[in-house]
Amino acid sequence: MTRLINRQPSRYSRLMLGLLPFIVLFVIYLVTSDARLAENPSDKLLPSLGSFADAIVRMGFEPSKRTGEYLLWQDTFASLQRLGIAVGLSAMIGLVIGVFNGMIPYVRSPLSPLVTALSLIPPMAILPILFITFGLGELSKVVLIVIGITPVIIRDIQLRTDALPSEQLIKAQTLGGNSWQIILRVVLPQTMPRLIDAVRLTLGSAWLFLIAAEAIAATEGLGYRIFLVRRYLAMDVILPYVFWITTLAFAMDWSLKRISILAFPWYHSAQGARND
């Protein structure tokens, strides 16, 4: 084993190597933050750990002086609600249209070009239209996310449906299945784990659209808060918020993966160890 491509780190060293860059970044931050604060104690750019702790306590565990709400949790709840509704809707629309597009030529012919065209519209460009049409409330934010990610999910599901071996569909027909039964019992269950994959991949864009919409017009939400405190250069709030958003995104991705492994063991065993 002298070739680099053949050398495998042990389990322990893999963990250590994985942690290493995080530790390095953390140390670099501490050192530079200390240096700046030594020069100017009221520097706001790289706050000390102490001011992060203060900010976290202030945002998460003390009621706001102005409204009496716990801001971090209020923001989290508002954002997750928007994200949850929008992603759920997109997944449902994506699944139904994707499967029908993939399976039924008479649906695909009229819908497929439309979906392709819609997916090429930059969603941010039509955000003003959404605000004008749906108002500044929750609906326009949800619609932005839906418009942003649904076409991607539809196209992914359609591709996956197309990729089902034709042997399977022929076999199902020789077993007497009609179109509806075949879609329901053969195609749909096999697309479900792929839908979860598609949702995992689009979650990043969903967050992007959510924060963009909140930054422009909202009264609460994680994105709203970050853009609000930006005016005061409040890095002690922004950085913990970014960290929190990252944690939430990671938790969602991880739970979707677990759900998929638990609910569709056949999918993951057929894929071998590729459970990443």
Binding site: E167, Q168, K171, Q173, T174, L175, Q190, Y267
Partner: peptide
């Protein structure tokens, strides 16, 4: 003119449904 129950088929592969 389309597959039906009178004709059973076994292919070299992909004949069975992986999710069942």
């Amino acid at each position: 003119p389309e597959p039906s129950v009178e004709r059973g088929i076994v292919f070299q592969k992909y004949s069975v449904f992986p999710h069942l």
